[in-house]
Each structure stands twice: as C-alpha cells, then as structure tokens.
Design a protein around this nucleic acid. Structure first.
Length: 226
DNA sequence: CCAGACGTTGTT
DNA sequence: GTCTGG
DNA sequence: CCAGACGTTGTT
DNA sequence: GTCTGG
C-alpha cells in the first residue's frame, strides 16, 4: 500500500509546518514514486525540511538498491523489526503530501483511486528515516511511510493505508525524546474518514513517467478534475 | 559458534 | 548492526 | 505502487 | 515468475 502520492501545492508547506521559507525549489508533484527524492520534515531543535529518497536503506545494506529498499513500515510491528526499530525510536519524520493513490485489484487490471482532504490541503504521513553511508563516504538519506489498517473510506479499495498525523500531533511525532512505542500508539490508528474524499482517477498514474495534473483526471471517463 | 536474514505488498 | 536458525 | 526487463556470444 | 527501476 501507499506506493504513490502527490504534493501538488508545495508552497503550503511553509505555513503548515511553520518553516521560515522553503530551503529549495519544489515543483508540484502528481506522481511521487519509490526511489525518488521528496521533502520530509524532521524534528530536533527546530523543524527542518529535507529532501530524502523514498525507500529506506538500512545501514547494513550492501547498496542503496534492490531488496533492502523498504517503502512501507507496518505500524503494528515497526518497533521490533531490525530494519526499522532504531529509526522508529530516534528518526521519525513527517512526509509532505496532499493526496495518495491506492489501486483496487480483483478485476482484469488494477484501478487507481486517489484520496485527499475534502477540497485539498496538506497531509502529513508518519515516516521513519535513515542515513546510509555510500562507498565514497557521502550520506544517502531515505525514508519509509508507516502503514495502518484501512478506514471506512479506504476499505472498499484496499485493506491498508498510510498513517496520517494530525497537525496537533506533529510535535509529539517528531519529539526525539520519545523513544517508546506506547506514547505514540494513539497516532498510529487508521485515520478518521471524516474530512477525506476519494474517487477513481486516470490510469496515467500507473506509469511513473507521467507526473502531471492529468493523473488526477476522474476515471474512467477522465473528463474532469475535482 | 557461524550463516543468513533483515521488509511490505499481493497472490496462491 | 543485530537477530534468528541450525 | 506499476512497468518493463529478464542474456550471451560474436561481430560491427 | 521474479527482479529492477522509477
């Protein structure tokens, strides 16, 4: 689950996360895919926007590709999986998004759907990140998106969805002094469906080469945007 | 002790 | 690196 | 997540 | 079928 998402209005990140200004240019994105770079918010003294690669590479991995590249982390088990345990305890982040895709399977081909806040708006996924050392000594930063069970809106499409952190909980999720699972448990439940909307979208999104507003055209007739 | 896995998803 | 399996 | 490749040899 | 790339 959660293998593609959007960040169509990056300018909203400044206000949403209380950043001074964007530290780099961000183009609107309609089809963010694993291995690509995308912005996340990390905590510490102050919140900071960073560009990390989607697909967590553990420090022990032989390289940054292949099987040791983890795009999702199950919230139910993240705290004791060797690949995620330390990242969950010490390196949590907020993944900057404003919608995400899920494919409904069972027919002859998977049908893409898109969930967003009603009318749009920033969505922060719960993430964990890692710093990997490349052979030449440079760091490679990466992240994984936490998943949880589907809420009522998602259930007809798929049984998993990303963990979504409410604005009021940003500080707690990012707080590096919290290293246990228990004080974060209530943040890892399926999001309330109120305030979200979902609908079928264009199969254009299937190909990562397509990163344009056309990905969001309503399916199957693809005649209109939201 | 060393060797080998370490993850999620969906599908069967 | 750390845990599990043999 | 889906799309697309998946191989070697010898010859140019 | 399975792996890699984006």
């Amino acid at each position: 689950m959660c293998g593609r998402y959007t960040l169509t209005s990056p300018d909203e990140l400044v206000q949403e996360f209380g950043l001074g200004e964007l530290p780099f240019d961000l183009a609107p994105r309609y089809n963010i895919a694993p291995t690509q770079e995308a912005p996340v918010v990390v905590g510490g003294q102050v919140r900071e926007l960073r560009l990390f690669h989607w697909g967590l590479v553990p420090q022990w991995a032989k390289d940054t590709r292949g099987g040791a590249r983890l795009i999702n982390a199950r919230s139910e088990t993240v705290h004791d999986k060797p690949s995620f345990r330390e990242a969950f305890a010490r390196r949590r982040c907020l993944i900057c998004a404003d919608g995400f895709y899920e494919w409904k399977r069972g027919g002859k081909r998977p049908v893409p759907h898109y969930m967003r806040r009603v009318g749009g708006g920033v969505i922060a996924f719960a993430g964990v990140w890692e710093r990997y050392q490349l052979p030449d000594g440079r760091p490679y930063f990466s992240y994984a998106a936490m998943t949880t069970g589907a809420n009522g809106l998602m259930a007809p499409i798929h049984d998993r969805m990303p963990v979504i952190i409410d604005r009021a909980d940003y500080d707690r999720w990012l707080d590096p002094s919290i290293r246990e699972r228990a004080p974060l448990d209530d943040l890892l439940r399926p999001p309330a469906e109120a305030g979200f909307e979902m609908r079928q979208v264009s199969e254009r999104v299937n190909s990562v080469a397509n990163d344009s507003p056309a990905c969001l055209l309503a399916g199957p007739d693809q005649q209109s945007l939201f």
